[in-house]
Design a protein around this nucleic acid. Structure first.
Length: 592
RNA sequence: GGUCUAGUAGCUCAGUUGGAUAGAGCAACGGCCUUCUAAGCCGUAGGUCUCAGGUUCGAAUCCUGACUAGAUCACCA
């Protein structure tokens, strides 16, 4: 549509004013609320071609296009804005066309994109921050796929490092061989408890040392627990059997726990990487980098890269004791991925606290002669904070993922029971619907906000189920399904025609116009890596439909053609809701 | 201190190649269920788009500077 208008505007300018036109000057938008018209051309940028006043230019163009473009019913000029109203036939045909093509299918991207998200540490359970990461990564994957790309979802499990050794040490010292079975606990929760316990005891030791005269920094370094944890890390890297056994056992507990949470969120991966197997490749790369003089070795044997010439700092790649750091591992993982899959793009969904890390990572990869660096993109999202500040696992001030989901289900159950609308369904059906609603509320709440913005979550204020929420959208879908179920019995078929003496309502055209934007919205969301755009689009569509639903009856409409049209329109709205929400990873029920 | 990100209604947020009168939801108040699912709809009230300059026909949007908040600059990950 826009393309057609642009074409005619360009032609008009060329014919009337004999000018050479830059397409970028022509902008088409939806006509503003309260003004007569469907599409608007902003004329101001075009006066440089016409050398006339905006109003006169608009009038010239209006006449020109109206004569040539049959789909335009009328036009008007307000200040420098040229508004077009499309014909009824045009809109009915748009609906007909939409209804013939029921799937999201935009073969336009055609890139191979690898996307990493989730990337949990195996020393603690998932919390709200991880939920944001997972939902974002999952939704972006779905959207990129819908935009025509091949998407490979990967998870990089951070299963080694000093933080894991802390949990292990605490368990060895005070765990008394407890297991998830013996304590009847989710594995990730059990391990997380020992991580917290380590921190508690460690802090006690620091306090003692500070009392005996050490500085805070010295105390942190010299505390016996820290020394022991470091020893475990070295034993681990050396392949010590017993250390590896405990490590593997505790990690497997955590994986079982994560699996349950992922299942609940309906999140899965095409491939899972473990840092315990990629960090060695990182070490090899460090050796190569040393040979190529990209890196330098300090007298104490630690390895560094100097990026001070590029406005960054010196960065360590290998500790003096030879163990690897985060950067080393990420380096190894990146090369492994490019060599195995050769993706056109590699997206990392990682919090904005790591902006600097990825800047450095790209720089280092750039130093090796490869074009990988330019293919790396960091989808940096804002942290989820509590009213009192950052969540800290070590201090137990986190909103636990499982607890939050459970709480959502309880609320959904309560609301559902109060409404009583699904009481006649079976127990299992009810449970399924309630779970769908609970997760819909949670997921939509997280995903509707711009990823790059920090968000505050107040645990004392529960997530809403009314207003701009997942359940509101789901509800509208269920309501349309209910109408369609009733209509099915009446055996009504949409013919795609409406006689000229009946006319469409403004609100119907508005809905239809919104429906036709769906493909563009997907592309925009994919380009900007922002699922929130789709969330807002669906909300807007749903709101428009609800207004229509409230003011006009669909099934009681006596004019057969309008009845058909309205049913088809409703059907299309329901389908768009379903498809759109699916891109966000949210299910929509047919009853609720 | 350097770098990055953000600042829009009491609260949570929309608002991107600069376009007409800055929009939703929540909370508050008032109305609408014998009629397709009221998790809905309508209305009232709520704004110096942090501030000050600049760019221009036009700025919440772009530029500069201040202020505020957060992140980061680790032999943590």
């Amino acid at each position: 549509m826009e393309k057609d208008i642009i074409k005619y505007i360009k032609e008009g300018l060329e014919t009337i004013y004999k000018a050479e036109i830059d397409n970028l000057d022509i902008s088409i938008e939806k006509t503003r609320e309260g003004i007569d018209g469907d599409f608007t051309v902003v004329v101001f940028p075009l006066v440089k071609y016409s050398k006339k006043k905006p109003e006169d230019t608009a009038r010239d163009l209006g006449v020109f296009i109206k004569q040539r473009f049959d789909d335009i019913a009328s036009y008007n000029v307000i200040k420098g804005f040229l508004n077009f109203k499309m014909t009824q036939e045009y809109w009915v045909n748009r609906l007909k066309k939409l209804s013939q093509n029921n799937q999201v299918n935009l073969n336009k991207g055609e890139q191979k994109i690898m996307i990493e998200f989730s990337s949990p540490n195996t020393n603690k359970p998932l919390h709200l921050g991880h939920i944001r990461n997972n939902l974002l990564g999952d939704a972006v994957s779905r959207i990129l796929k819908a935009a025509g790309n091949t998407v490979i979802k990967v998870n990089l499990i951070n299963d080694r490092g000093i933080h894991i050794c802390k949990s292990m040490l605490a368990w060895i010292k005070w765990g008394e061989n407890s297991t998830p079975e013996s304590t009847n606990q989710k594995g990730d929760k059990l391990v997380g408890e020992y991580y917290v316990l380590f921190d508690k005891k460690y802090k006690e030791q620091i306090a003692e040392l500070v009392n005996s005269g050490l500085s805070e920094d010295e105390a942190k370094e010299k505390a016996p627990l820290m020394l022991e944890a470091r020893e475990i890390l070295q034993k681990w890297e050396a392949g010590d059997k017993e250390t590896r056994r405990i490590w593997a056992m505790m990690n497997s507990w955590v994986y079982d726990g994560f699996e349950q949470t992922y299942n609940m969120l309906d999140i899965n991966f095409d491939k899972v990487y473990y840092e315990s197997s990629t960090y060695l490749l990182g070490k090899e790369l460090v050796a190569k980098g040393l040979a190529k003089d990209i890196f330098t070795k300090d007298p104490d044997n630690s390895v560094w890269i100097d990026l001070t010439n590029e406005g960054l700092d010196r960065k360590i790649l290998l500790r003096s004791d030879g163990t690897t750091v985060y950067m080393t591992q990420d380096l190894g993982t990146a090369f492994e991925r490019f060599e195995e899959f050769n993706p056109d793009k590699m997206i990392y969904v990682v919090g904005n606290e790591q902006d600097y890390h990825f800047k450095v990572l790209k720089k280092i990869i750039d130093k090796f002669d490869s074009d990988y660096s330019s293919k790396i993109e960091h989808l940096s999202y804002g942290m989820v904070e509590l009213p009192e500040g950052k969540m800290k696992s070590r201090e137990g001030t986190v909103v636990d993922a499982d607890d939050l989901i459970e709480e959502m289900i309880l609320t959904a159950t309560k609301i559902s029971e109060e409404s009583g609308k699904i009481n006649d369904l079976s127990e299992s059906e009810r449970k399924q619907i309630i779970k769908t609603i609970a997760l819909g509320a949670l997921k939509y709440y997280i995903i509707k906000v711009d990823p790059k913005k920090q968000m505050t979550f107040n645990p004392n204020e529960s997530i809403d189920f009314t207003g701009n929420t997942g359940p509101f959208i789901q509800y509208t879908h269920a309501r349309i399904c209910s109408i369609l179920r009733k209509a099915e019995k009446m055996n009504i078929k949409f013919m795609g025609k409406i006689s000229t003496e009946t006319s469409l309502l403004n609100c119907e055209i508005k809905i239809l116009s919104t429906l036709t934007e769906f493909d563009n919205v997907i592309m925009e969301s994919a380009n900007r890596l922002d699922p929130g755009i789709i969330a807002n689009y669906i909300y807007n569509l749903v709101k428009e439909f609800n207004q229509f639903y409230n003011d006009y009856s669909i099934l009681k409409e006596t004019n057969a053609e309008i009845l058909q049209f309205r049913l088809q329109l409703s059907h299309q709205v329901a389908l768009t809701i379903k498809n759109g929400m699916e891109l966000l990873g949210i299910d929509v029920p047919e009853k609720m």
